[in-house]
Nucleic acid binder design. Structure first.
Lengths: 364, 364
DNA sequence: TCCTCCCATGTTTAGTAAACAAGCGCGAGC
DNA sequence: GCTCGCGCTTGTTTACTAAACATGGGAGGA
């Protein structure tokens, strides 16, 4: 994507709806800029493919650029429903990149072939790449890796591919979910998978089977559902299953929150009470999970931590004198207890009911 | 001075020509507020006698108020010519007060009896007092001290009065001046005193005689002049002396810069060249000293340091469990070498010719 | 071709708009 | 007459920007 004239900070400012000063501060990781505003600026930078003037020769130490490739091949998972955790990834990366004197630029690819992504990297004035691997295959990863830049992939994981990954620990997460269900005494534990095939979804499903065996539990084939991974799609598919006479399990682990939302809505409409009749746990802890009826118990993995670790690993690779062995890192999960799995945990009433959105992020 | 209606931060903001947010930040010692702006706000606070709402009951630990009494009994020395170092005192106090979680309020008294000053203190919701003692007598100090608040006096010094003082070290200063003159080989060293009687002026004169004796030099009675301490007054008085056939000494130490400015102007008009015919050194290092013709060699005592130490001592007194013995502190002087005393000292060219005015003051 | 000047681009500081919090005063209801 | 609730006023805080400043590049002139 080329522009006919040279872009300046003022163009980015206009595109992002902020001042040139704000753009400068965001690009340099300075000032008190909210996450919302910083995201807007970085999105504009990516959209317009702005390249700062200061990219002249690799200068020692600080001031280098890392490029985050936000790759949405088909949009079945990387879409507006997930923009929240894209933002969280960027927050984690941005903060750590700034701390290490990198500029983080964000480039989005939607519906484009991976060859176009690879092409965009050739000769780019950057030091390293962090790629969102949610919808990437092994071949995609090898192609991007092959360009030659130090690269880290996040939100995906291939243990036989010679590349660097930072992902959530699906194993740990699923184990926690099943343990929770077991603590309720449930025997028939169901799994709601996604039609869409992503590595994490597959890892999650594999982990489900593995850990059910670990808990000494059999999985009924009919208890493993596969539905569309958009809200409407999940709702529609669940209704169809219910109308077709689905024999409900005691509880279901949904492979992500969006699916859980659609799933619960269809259940409720069918007269199935959550969690009285069937217990539900999701994955991702989207903000909406706190406000669904009932509120959703869900797995949270800190995407800021993933972003932070991605930059950390990438920086090490960039600064390494010689070729480094691949690094694969998994970040542990937390189970956020709410209402949908059955047993409310009393939470202390917060002293300040309202908290200002987008608080200043800690400097370190 | 009373107002008919309750003052708010918005009134102070209007008076100071800033926003209410700025006033709030200044009063709470927060934000990046330039020295210039902070002074404007504090002067408006003093002028309008604004009392913050939050003065309700002495709260433990931080958030107490210190009151700076800017007392100008007759204005012969505490006047607009000296507003610069009043600001410096306030800067030093303000910075340290903020660091120790005090609010520093400034109250001006011009031409009012000390009884009015004392009266204003009775029952005031403050923790301690710092008083500008330039024009105060011993009795004045005993009266203010007698109100009962922990009190520190600055810019004056009485060694037999049971009170706390932070002043410049006149002895040290005068010794440095005389040493400088002696390094030029001068034998007849004159002193230009002020008609006005302040403690520091008297201390300076006493130090002059004492240190002349210390250097083994006699003082000719005719070499000690006494003139008005305003610019015009010093000029007029000096002209009168010259027209009356003054036998000039080799050099003169002027008791303050204003006097030095008027003195030099009259000398120049009379055809006496400074420093070729007579060498001059002043006291105070007012900003104008750098731009007079010739630029004035002068004594500088850090008034920020005095302000800082005043708050430090006052805080110690406030927090002391029992009555403390009086503290008297003298701050050393520096001689700022310029042209008026004869021997130019080459100064290195600054790397940055222009510096933004009122840079952010260091946090610590 | 080189040098100087001007303009454009990026940076930084300090001040504020606006959102928010807290407190006070007034009015209504019991 | 007292208490409670609501609305308004006052003070606070955050994050964004105006404007001053710095730097670099380009154009024009010598």
């Amino acid at each position: 994507m080329k522009t006919t004239k040279k872009l300046t900070i003022r163009d980015i400012a206009q595109a992002a709806g902020v001042s040139p000063a704000t753009v400068s501060l965001v690009l340099n990781g300075k000032g008190d800029i909210s996450g919302v505003t910083r995201k807007r600026v970085l999105e504009a930078v990516a959209r317009l493919n702005y390249v700062p003037r200061s990219l002249k020769g690799g200068n020692e130490g600080g001031g280098d650029t890392l490029r985050f490739l936000k790759i949405s091949k088909h949009g079945h998972t990387v879409n507006r429903d997930h923009s929240v955790f894209i933002s969280d990834y960027i927050d984690g990366m941005s903060a750590e990149a700034t701390r290490r004197n990198y500029t983080l630029e964000v480039v989005s690819f939607e519906g484009q072939p991976i060859s176009a992504v690879a092409e965009s990297l050739a000769g780019a004035p950057i030091s390293g790449v962090i790629a969102l691997g949610t919808e990437l295959t092994e071949d995609d990863i090898r192609l991007i890796q092959g360009i030659g830049f130090p690269t880290v992939f996040i939100d995906t994981f291939y243990d036989v591919v010679d590349a660097n990954f930072v992902d959530m620990n699906n194993e740990d997460a699923v184990y926690k979910v099943l343990s929770r269900f077991r603590s309720h005494g449930f025997e028939r534990i169901g799994f709601v998978a996604s039609h869409v095939d992503t590595t994490n979804f597959r890892l999650r499903q594999d982990a489900f089977f593995k850990n059910m065996a670990r808990h000494g539990l059999k999985v009924r084939e009919s208890d493993v559902l596969s539905i569309e991974s958009t809200y409407d799609g999940a709702y529609d598919d669940t209704r169809a299953l219910l109308e077709g006479g689905l024999d409900l399990a005691d509880c279901y682990f949904c492979t992500n929150d969006i699916i859980a939302y659609g799933f619960m809505k269809a259940l409720k409409e069918f007269g199935v009470r959550v969690p009285a009749d069937v217990s539900i746990i999701g994955f991702d802890n989207l903000p909406q999970s706190a406000t669904t009826e009932p509120s959703l118990t869900t797995i949270e993995v800190s995407k800021r931590k993933i972003g932070y670790l991605a930059v950390t690993i990438l920086d090490d690779i960039i600064n390494a004198a010689e070729s480094q062995p691949s690094v694969k890192m998994l970040v542990g999960a937390d189970l956020v207890l709410r209402a949908s799995d059955g047993q409310d945990v009393p939470r202390p009433m917060p002293l300040q009911p309202k908290v200002r959105a987008a608080r200043r992020q800690p400097a370190e």
